[in-house]
Amino acid sequence: MILYVLRRLASAVPTLFLIVTISFFMIRLAPGGPFDLERPLDPVIMQNLQRAFGLDLPLWQQYLLYLGNLLQGDLGPSFTRRDFTVVDLFRYGLPVSIVIGGLALSIALVVGLVLGALAALRQNSWIDYAVVGTATFGITIPTFVIAPLLSLFFGVMMGWLPAGGWGTWKHAVLPITTLALPQIAIVARLTRGATIEALRSNHVRTARAYGLPAYVVVGAHALRGAVLPVVSYLGPTAAALLTGSVVVETIFGIPGIGRYFVQGALGRDYTLVMGTVVVIACFVIVFNLIVDILYAWLDPRVRYD
Protein backbone atom coordinates (compact mmCIF):
# COMPACT_ATOMS: atom_id res chain seq x y z
CA MET A 1 0.00 0.00 0.00
CA ILE A 2 2.75 2.45 0.97
CA LEU A 3 4.57 1.45 -2.17
CA TYR A 4 1.44 2.21 -4.18
CA VAL A 5 1.09 5.67 -2.62
CA LEU A 6 4.73 6.44 -3.30
CA ARG A 7 4.40 5.28 -6.89
CA ARG A 8 1.32 7.46 -7.35
CA LEU A 9 3.06 10.48 -5.88
CA ALA A 10 6.03 9.91 -8.16
CA SER A 11 3.77 9.73 -11.20
CA ALA A 12 2.22 13.04 -10.14
CA VAL A 13 5.49 14.84 -10.89
CA PRO A 14 5.37 14.49 -14.69
CA THR A 15 1.65 15.33 -14.67
CA LEU A 16 2.33 18.49 -12.71
CA PHE A 17 5.21 19.33 -15.02
CA LEU A 18 2.98 19.00 -18.09
CA ILE A 19 0.25 21.13 -16.54
CA VAL A 20 2.75 23.82 -15.60
CA THR A 21 4.28 23.81 -19.07
CA ILE A 22 0.99 23.97 -20.97
CA SER A 23 -0.46 26.72 -18.81
CA PHE A 24 2.78 28.71 -18.82
CA PHE A 25 2.80 28.95 -22.60
CA MET A 26 -0.97 29.29 -22.91
CA ILE A 27 -1.20 32.35 -20.70
CA ARG A 28 1.76 33.87 -22.57
CA LEU A 29 -0.11 33.32 -25.84
CA ALA A 30 -2.78 35.77 -24.74
CA PRO A 31 -2.18 39.25 -26.13
CA GLY A 32 -1.43 42.09 -23.74
CA GLY A 33 0.75 42.11 -20.66
CA PRO A 34 0.46 42.73 -16.94
CA PHE A 35 1.51 46.37 -17.21
CA ASP A 36 -0.89 47.48 -19.94
CA LEU A 37 -2.98 50.40 -18.81
CA GLU A 38 -5.63 52.53 -20.49
CA ARG A 39 -2.95 55.16 -21.01
CA PRO A 40 0.27 53.54 -22.23
CA LEU A 41 3.18 53.74 -19.82
CA ASP A 42 6.28 55.66 -20.66
CA PRO A 43 8.46 53.23 -22.67
CA VAL A 44 11.41 53.65 -20.29
CA ILE A 45 9.26 52.86 -17.25
CA MET A 46 7.81 49.91 -19.12
CA GLN A 47 11.31 48.61 -19.88
CA ASN A 48 12.34 48.99 -16.25
CA LEU A 49 9.23 47.21 -15.04
CA GLN A 50 9.79 44.37 -17.47
CA ARG A 51 13.43 44.09 -16.43
CA ALA A 52 12.48 44.10 -12.75
CA PHE A 53 10.11 41.16 -13.27
CA GLY A 54 12.34 39.34 -15.72
CA LEU A 55 9.91 39.76 -18.62
CA ASP A 56 12.63 41.08 -20.95
CA LEU A 57 14.34 37.69 -21.13
CA PRO A 58 13.56 35.25 -23.94
CA LEU A 59 10.51 33.14 -23.17
CA TRP A 60 12.41 29.85 -22.75
CA GLN A 61 14.72 31.46 -20.18
CA GLN A 62 11.73 32.77 -18.27
CA TYR A 63 10.24 29.30 -18.38
CA LEU A 64 13.37 27.63 -17.04
CA LEU A 65 13.67 30.31 -14.36
CA TYR A 66 10.08 29.72 -13.35
CA LEU A 67 10.59 25.97 -13.16
CA GLY A 68 13.72 26.47 -11.07
CA ASN A 69 11.93 28.77 -8.65
CA LEU A 70 8.96 26.43 -8.49
CA LEU A 71 11.20 23.57 -7.38
CA GLN A 72 12.29 25.75 -4.47
CA GLY A 73 8.67 26.54 -3.57
CA ASP A 74 8.90 30.09 -4.89
CA LEU A 75 5.92 31.08 -7.03
CA GLY A 76 7.34 34.51 -7.81
CA PRO A 77 6.03 38.02 -7.15
CA SER A 78 2.48 38.96 -8.10
CA PHE A 79 2.43 41.31 -11.08
CA THR A 80 -0.77 43.14 -10.23
CA ARG A 81 -0.63 43.13 -6.42
CA ARG A 82 2.85 44.57 -6.27
CA ASP A 83 3.43 44.30 -2.54
CA PHE A 84 2.79 40.58 -2.36
CA THR A 85 4.45 37.45 -3.56
CA VAL A 86 2.12 34.77 -4.89
CA VAL A 87 3.06 32.55 -1.94
CA ASP A 88 1.97 35.36 0.42
CA LEU A 89 -1.35 35.69 -1.36
CA PHE A 90 -2.00 32.00 -0.91
CA ARG A 91 -0.84 32.09 2.70
CA TYR A 92 -3.59 34.64 3.43
CA GLY A 93 -6.29 33.36 1.11
CA LEU A 94 -5.98 29.58 1.15
CA PRO A 95 -6.93 29.06 4.83
CA VAL A 96 -10.12 31.05 4.29
CA SER A 97 -11.09 29.00 1.25
CA ILE A 98 -10.18 25.74 2.98
CA VAL A 99 -12.27 26.57 6.05
CA ILE A 100 -15.34 27.46 4.01
CA GLY A 101 -14.92 24.67 1.48
CA GLY A 102 -14.05 22.07 4.09
CA LEU A 103 -17.06 22.85 6.25
CA ALA A 104 -19.34 22.88 3.21
CA LEU A 105 -17.89 19.55 2.14
CA SER A 106 -18.38 17.93 5.57
CA ILE A 107 -21.94 19.22 5.84
CA ALA A 108 -22.74 18.06 2.32
CA LEU A 109 -21.30 14.63 3.03
CA VAL A 110 -23.13 14.07 6.33
CA VAL A 111 -26.48 15.57 5.35
CA GLY A 112 -26.40 14.13 1.84
CA LEU A 113 -25.54 10.62 3.00
CA VAL A 114 -28.23 10.63 5.70
CA LEU A 115 -30.92 12.02 3.40
CA GLY A 116 -29.98 9.70 0.54
CA ALA A 117 -29.94 6.62 2.76
CA LEU A 118 -33.26 7.58 4.36
CA ALA A 119 -34.84 8.06 0.94
CA ALA A 120 -33.55 4.69 -0.23
CA LEU A 121 -34.70 2.84 2.91
CA ARG A 122 -38.18 4.35 2.61
CA GLN A 123 -38.39 4.21 -1.17
CA ASN A 124 -41.59 5.73 -2.63
CA SER A 125 -42.62 7.19 0.73
CA TRP A 126 -43.10 10.89 1.36
CA ILE A 127 -39.51 11.13 2.67
CA ASP A 128 -38.25 9.74 -0.61
CA TYR A 129 -40.30 12.17 -2.67
CA ALA A 130 -39.28 15.11 -0.47
CA VAL A 131 -35.59 14.24 -0.78
CA VAL A 132 -35.73 13.66 -4.53
CA GLY A 133 -37.75 16.86 -5.07
CA THR A 134 -35.41 18.97 -2.94
CA ALA A 135 -32.41 17.43 -4.64
CA THR A 136 -33.78 18.40 -8.05
CA PHE A 137 -34.10 21.96 -6.75
CA GLY A 138 -30.58 21.96 -5.39
CA ILE A 139 -29.07 20.62 -8.58
CA THR A 140 -31.00 22.90 -10.92
CA ILE A 141 -30.60 26.28 -9.25
CA PRO A 142 -27.11 27.60 -9.92
CA THR A 143 -24.87 28.98 -7.19
CA PHE A 144 -24.92 32.49 -8.56
CA VAL A 145 -28.69 32.55 -8.11
CA ILE A 146 -28.75 30.95 -4.66
CA ALA A 147 -25.95 33.11 -3.26
CA PRO A 148 -27.49 36.56 -3.87
CA LEU A 149 -30.97 35.33 -2.95
CA LEU A 150 -29.71 33.98 0.40
CA SER A 151 -27.77 37.17 0.98
CA LEU A 152 -30.84 39.25 0.11
CA PHE A 153 -33.22 37.29 2.30
CA PHE A 154 -31.17 36.56 5.42
CA GLY A 155 -28.80 39.49 5.15
CA VAL A 156 -30.79 42.43 3.85
CA MET A 157 -34.46 41.69 4.53
CA MET A 158 -34.26 39.73 7.81
CA GLY A 159 -30.97 41.11 9.06
CA TRP A 160 -30.13 37.85 10.84
CA LEU A 161 -26.74 37.40 9.26
CA PRO A 162 -24.28 39.74 7.57
CA ALA A 163 -25.01 39.98 3.84
CA GLY A 164 -21.31 39.83 3.01
CA GLY A 165 -17.81 40.31 4.34
CA TRP A 166 -15.48 38.22 6.42
CA GLY A 167 -14.57 38.13 10.11
CA THR A 168 -16.81 36.27 12.54
CA TRP A 169 -18.42 32.86 12.24
CA LYS A 170 -21.64 34.60 11.25
CA HIS A 171 -20.02 35.72 8.02
CA ALA A 172 -19.28 32.13 7.11
CA VAL A 173 -22.82 30.77 7.47
CA LEU A 174 -24.29 31.96 4.17
CA PRO A 175 -21.28 31.11 1.97
CA ILE A 176 -21.02 27.64 3.50
CA THR A 177 -24.75 27.12 2.97
CA THR A 178 -24.48 28.25 -0.64
CA LEU A 179 -21.62 25.90 -1.34
CA ALA A 180 -23.14 22.98 0.55
CA LEU A 181 -26.68 23.03 -0.90
CA PRO A 182 -25.97 21.75 -4.42
CA GLN A 183 -23.47 19.21 -3.06
CA ILE A 184 -26.02 17.93 -0.54
CA ALA A 185 -28.44 17.47 -3.42
CA ILE A 186 -25.96 15.56 -5.57
CA VAL A 187 -24.64 13.41 -2.71
CA ALA A 188 -28.20 12.57 -1.64
CA ARG A 189 -29.14 11.52 -5.16
CA LEU A 190 -26.03 9.41 -5.64
CA THR A 191 -26.45 7.76 -2.23
CA ARG A 192 -30.11 7.05 -2.84
CA GLY A 193 -29.47 5.35 -6.16
CA ALA A 194 -26.52 3.33 -4.90
CA THR A 195 -28.26 2.29 -1.66
CA ILE A 196 -31.34 1.07 -3.50
CA GLU A 197 -29.08 -1.07 -5.63
CA ALA A 198 -27.02 -2.27 -2.66
CA LEU A 199 -30.13 -3.27 -0.69
CA ARG A 200 -31.02 -5.69 -3.48
CA SER A 201 -27.55 -7.21 -3.71
CA ASN A 202 -26.63 -10.70 -2.58
CA HIS A 203 -24.33 -9.84 0.26
CA VAL A 204 -26.97 -7.65 1.92
CA ARG A 205 -29.54 -10.41 1.52
CA THR A 206 -27.07 -12.81 3.11
CA ALA A 207 -26.49 -10.44 6.00
CA ARG A 208 -30.25 -10.21 6.50
CA ALA A 209 -30.57 -13.97 6.38
CA TYR A 210 -27.98 -14.29 9.13
CA GLY A 211 -30.39 -12.28 11.25
CA LEU A 212 -28.09 -9.33 11.77
CA PRO A 213 -29.85 -6.28 13.22
CA ALA A 214 -31.13 -3.79 10.66
CA TYR A 215 -28.66 -1.06 11.58
CA VAL A 216 -25.73 -3.41 11.03
CA VAL A 217 -27.13 -4.59 7.69
CA VAL A 218 -27.64 -1.04 6.49
CA GLY A 219 -24.72 0.67 8.18
CA ALA A 220 -21.98 -1.91 7.76
CA HIS A 221 -23.02 -3.74 4.61
CA ALA A 222 -25.35 -1.74 2.38
CA LEU A 223 -23.94 1.76 2.93
CA ARG A 224 -20.36 0.59 2.66
CA GLY A 225 -20.92 -0.29 -0.97
CA ALA A 226 -23.27 2.58 -1.55
CA VAL A 227 -20.75 5.28 -0.70
CA LEU A 228 -18.43 4.20 -3.52
CA PRO A 229 -20.00 6.44 -6.19
CA VAL A 230 -20.17 9.25 -3.64
CA VAL A 231 -16.47 8.87 -2.91
CA SER A 232 -15.51 8.97 -6.56
CA TYR A 233 -17.73 12.01 -7.09
CA LEU A 234 -16.29 13.78 -4.08
CA GLY A 235 -12.65 13.52 -5.17
CA PRO A 236 -12.63 16.27 -7.80
CA THR A 237 -15.45 18.09 -6.00
CA ALA A 238 -13.44 18.34 -2.78
CA ALA A 239 -10.52 19.80 -4.69
CA ALA A 240 -12.84 22.35 -6.32
CA LEU A 241 -14.54 23.29 -3.03
CA LEU A 242 -11.33 23.66 -1.03
CA THR A 243 -9.72 25.89 -3.64
CA GLY A 244 -12.55 28.38 -3.43
CA SER A 245 -15.43 29.40 -5.65
CA VAL A 246 -15.28 32.56 -7.76
CA VAL A 247 -19.02 33.15 -7.53
CA VAL A 248 -19.40 32.69 -3.79
CA GLU A 249 -16.30 34.71 -2.96
CA THR A 250 -17.34 37.55 -5.24
CA ILE A 251 -20.91 37.77 -3.98
CA PHE A 252 -20.10 37.52 -0.28
CA GLY A 253 -16.85 39.46 -0.50
CA ILE A 254 -14.66 36.73 0.97
CA PRO A 255 -10.87 37.07 0.77
CA GLY A 256 -10.28 33.52 -0.47
CA ILE A 257 -8.32 32.26 -3.46
CA GLY A 258 -11.27 31.46 -5.71
CA ARG A 259 -11.03 34.77 -7.51
CA TYR A 260 -7.30 34.60 -8.19
CA PHE A 261 -7.53 32.57 -11.36
CA VAL A 262 -10.04 34.72 -13.22
CA GLN A 263 -8.62 38.00 -11.93
CA GLY A 264 -5.10 36.86 -12.70
CA ALA A 265 -5.98 35.76 -16.21
CA LEU A 266 -7.83 38.98 -16.97
CA GLY A 267 -5.04 41.15 -15.54
CA ARG A 268 -2.31 38.99 -17.16
CA ASP A 269 -0.87 38.40 -13.73
CA TYR A 270 1.21 35.52 -15.09
CA THR A 271 2.65 34.35 -11.80
CA LEU A 272 -0.70 34.49 -10.01
CA VAL A 273 -2.37 32.40 -12.72
CA MET A 274 0.46 29.90 -12.69
CA GLY A 275 0.39 29.74 -8.90
CA THR A 276 -3.34 29.07 -8.92
CA VAL A 277 -2.92 26.36 -11.54
CA VAL A 278 -0.18 24.68 -9.51
CA VAL A 279 -2.17 24.84 -6.26
CA ILE A 280 -5.38 23.51 -7.85
CA ALA A 281 -3.47 20.76 -9.66
CA CYS A 282 -1.86 19.67 -6.38
CA PHE A 283 -5.27 19.52 -4.71
CA VAL A 284 -6.74 17.49 -7.57
CA ILE A 285 -3.83 15.04 -7.55
CA VAL A 286 -3.93 14.59 -3.78
CA PHE A 287 -7.69 14.09 -3.67
CA ASN A 288 -7.67 11.62 -6.54
CA LEU A 289 -5.09 9.67 -4.61
CA ILE A 290 -7.21 9.81 -1.44
CA VAL A 291 -10.20 8.58 -3.42
CA ASP A 292 -8.26 5.61 -4.76
CA ILE A 293 -7.00 4.69 -1.29
CA LEU A 294 -10.50 4.99 0.15
CA TYR A 295 -11.75 2.81 -2.66
CA ALA A 296 -9.37 0.02 -1.78
CA TRP A 297 -10.35 0.30 1.86
CA LEU A 298 -14.10 0.30 1.17
CA ASP A 299 -14.21 -2.26 -1.58
CA PRO A 300 -12.06 -5.33 -0.85
CA ARG A 301 -12.27 -6.35 -4.51
CA VAL A 302 -10.02 -3.42 -5.41
CA ARG A 303 -6.33 -4.20 -4.99
CA TYR A 304 -3.32 -2.08 -5.83
CA ASP A 305 -0.36 -4.43 -5.84
Binding site: T140, V145, S151, V156
Partner: peptide, 27 residues
Amino acid sequence: ISEGSDNMRSAPWLLIYPAVTLTAILF
Protein backbone atom coordinates in the same frame (compact mmCIF):
# COMPACT_ATOMS: atom_id res chain seq x y z
CA ILE B 1 -28.66 38.46 -12.14
CA SER B 2 -25.14 39.75 -11.65
CA GLU B 3 -26.36 43.36 -11.90
CA GLY B 4 -29.24 42.48 -9.63
CA SER B 5 -26.95 41.13 -6.95
CA ASP B 6 -24.94 44.37 -7.09
CA ASN B 7 -28.12 46.38 -6.51
CA MET B 8 -30.05 44.05 -4.25
CA ARG B 9 -30.03 46.32 -1.20
CA SER B 10 -31.71 49.22 -2.91
CA ALA B 11 -33.59 47.37 -5.64
CA PRO B 12 -34.29 43.70 -4.81
CA TRP B 13 -36.63 43.29 -7.81
CA LEU B 14 -33.59 43.59 -10.06
CA LEU B 15 -32.37 40.30 -8.61
CA ILE B 16 -35.64 38.48 -8.05
CA TYR B 17 -37.27 38.71 -11.48
CA PRO B 18 -34.28 37.54 -13.56
CA ALA B 19 -33.45 34.85 -10.98
CA VAL B 20 -37.00 33.48 -11.13
CA THR B 21 -36.96 33.54 -14.93
CA LEU B 22 -33.65 31.69 -15.20
CA THR B 23 -34.71 29.15 -12.60
CA ALA B 24 -37.95 28.48 -14.46
CA ILE B 25 -36.09 27.90 -17.72
CA LEU B 26 -33.55 25.60 -16.11
CA PHE B 27 -36.25 23.60 -14.35
